[in-house]
Computed example of a mutant assay.
Amino acid sequence: MGIKKILVVDDSPTDRYLLADILGRNGFEVDTAGNGKEAIEKIRLNRPQLVLMDVVMPGKNGFQITRLITRDPVMKDIPVMICSIKDQETDRIWALSQGACEYIVKPVNGQELLSKIAAIG
Rank of each mutant, 00 (worst) to 15 (best):
I69G: 03
P79H: 12
E89A: 10
I85P: 02
V80I: 11
R92M: 13
V105D: 08
S97Q: 15
A100C: 00
D87N: 11
R67A: 12
N61D: 15
I104Q: 06
V80K: 00
L96D: 01
Q98D: 11
P58M: 09
T66N: 04
R67F: 13
T90S: 14
E89G: 03
I104Y: 08
I78S: 07
C101N: 07
P79M: 13
Q64N: 11
F63A: 05
F63P: 06
C101F: 07
P73S: 15
K76H: 12
M75C: 11
E89S: 09
A100V: 05
V105F: 10
A100F: 00
I85V: 15
R67P: 07
E89P: 10
G62F: 00
D72W: 01
D77W: 02
W94E: 15
M81C: 13
I93W: 04
I69W: 00
D77T: 10
I69H: 01
P79Q: 11
W94R: 14
C101Y: 08
T66V: 04
S97K: 15
I93T: 14
I82W: 05
I85F: 06
M81E: 05
Q88N: 03
P58R: 08
R71T: 04
R67V: 00
Y103T: 06
Y103M: 04
G99R: 07
G99Y: 07
K60Q: 14
R71K: 14
P58T: 09
C101E: 09
C101D: 02
I85K: 01
D72Q: 03
N61E: 05
N61M: 04
V105C: 14
I104R: 09
L96T: 05
S84E: 13
D91R: 06
R71H: 12
T70R: 09
W94P: 01
A100K: 00
N61I: 03
L68A: 12
G59N: 05
D87M: 01
K86I: 12
R71V: 01
M75P: 02
V105I: 15
E102I: 08
L96W: 05
I78A: 08
I93L: 13
A100M: 00
K86M: 15
I69F: 01
T66F: 03
E102G: 09
D87V: 04
R67W: 12
T90R: 10
D91G: 10
W94S: 12
E102N: 13
P79E: 07
I65F: 08
G99N: 07
R67I: 00
L96S: 05
S97L: 13
G62W: 00
Q64M: 14
K60G: 08
C101H: 10
I85T: 14
V74C: 01
D87Q: 03
Q88K: 11
G59H: 03
I82K: 02
C83I: 07
